[in-house]
């Protein structure tokens, strides 16, 4: 995972019209912007925030799935889940590196996450309550991530685009793996089938919220689109996701928990019922059922690990000093 429709970005710029026009010309010519290139401050700031949120989402996203590694019901699933969660950590690492090219360190970004200043995808503030959630998260959450991230492979900022190409390959593997877990349950015992449906019921709406607010309420979209950081609007991506996912659920014999879901022949896509945006904003602001626990877990890992990081630094310093002394 996991980029969300950007939360609370501020795209104001103060550069001269000539500078901005020159920059826009490069963007329009589909040139990639590299870290050393001149860029409007707003462009830089938007990217730092977006890549940071994305990186944090990968890292916090390790927790809900990590919650089931020790209880995975077969050794094959245990290994696959462990590898999946490890991949998400790897995504976090590439993304922090991409953000670092813009002049913010991983430590700074981590501190912003732990202090609650930086946001991450609201989806991870929901609890994983059954093994089926490991399937549903792969299927829906990684699936939604792919919808968001495939266009980011063409993002105007080079390091982000390149990181996304690597990440997307793994996300589509996760999505297939998740779908396969859900399929096994849907074709399993009556209890397993109930588990699968319950899981879809809980994750469907939060997955739709991952694409961010409706276009009409998303004030920062236009500038990001013009800068080609973003290529599709939140609603466009959400629509693509719904249209791709509904037939998959039908194939499994599971029911999407939206009584208003209907095929709209005219637009060639599904219409869906209203999304509970109050819940979305509540969760984004850290009032989700798991928000406190997630940050607490990250903070504990960070604080408990401080002595290890200090030891590594101290040892490297001693080594360097000994090397100099020997020369």
């Amino acid at each position: 995972m996991y980029s969300q429709g950007l939360i609370g970005a501020d795209n104001r710029t103060e550069e001269t019209p000539e500078f901005l026009a020159r920059f826009q010309k490069r963007i329009d010519a589909e040139e990639k912007i590299e870290p050393k290139d001149e860029m409007p401050e707003g462009y830089r700031r938007t990217l730092v925030r977006q890549i940071g949120q994305h990186a944090h989402s990968e890292i916090v996203g390790m927790l809900p799935e990590g919650n089931w590694i020790t209880r995975a019901p077969s050794l094959r699933r245990k290994a696959a889940l462990l590898a999946k969660v490890q991949d998400e950590g790897g995504h976090g690492l590439y993304l922090y590196s991409a953000a670092e090219t813009l002049g913010v360190s991983r430590e700074e970004m981590t501190e912003e996450l732990l202090s609650g200043k930086a946001k991450y995808s609201s989806i991870f503030n929901y609890p994983t309550l059954s093994w089926a959630d490991m399937g549903t998260i792969g299927w829906l959450v990684d699936g939604a991530a792919i919808m968001n991230q495939i266009p980011l492979c063409r993002c105007s900022f080079g390091p982000y685009a390149r990181a996304m190409i690597r990440v997307c390959k793994e996300e589509s593997f996760h999505q297939r793996q998740g779908y396969e877990i859900v399929m096994t349950l849907a074709q399993g015992t009556p209890e397993q089938k109930v588990m699968a449906q319950d899981s879809l019921n809980r994750w469907w709406w939060p997955s739709l919220m991952m694409f961010g607010p409706h276009d009409a309420d998303s004030q920062h979209s236009d500038q990001s689109m013009a800068w080609k950081i973003k290529r599709f609007t939140n609603d466009e991506l959400r629509q693509k996701f719904i249209d791709a996912t509904v037939p998959q659920a039908e194939y499994l014999g599971l029911t999407i928990p939206d009584p208003d879901l209907t095929w709209n022949e005219e637009k060639g896509g599904y219409d869906h019922g209203p999304i509970d945006w109050d819940e979305f904003w509540r969760v984004v602001k850290g009032h989700g059922p798991m928000a406190k626990d997630r940050i607490k877990a990250r903070k504990k890992a960070w604080d408990d690990g401080a002595w290890v990081r200090e030891a590594a630094l101290a040892h490297a310093e001693k080594r360097r000093a000994r090397k100099i002394a020997a020369e």
Binding site: M62, G66, I69, L82, Q86, G89, G305, V308
Partner: peptide, 15 residues
């Protein structure tokens, strides 16, 4: 070892 996943002292060890 898997019990550490997501709780390591640094991201490199989480991998």
């Amino acid at each position: 070892l898997s019990e550490w996943c997501g709780h390591a002292p640094m991201l490199e060890e989480d991998l």
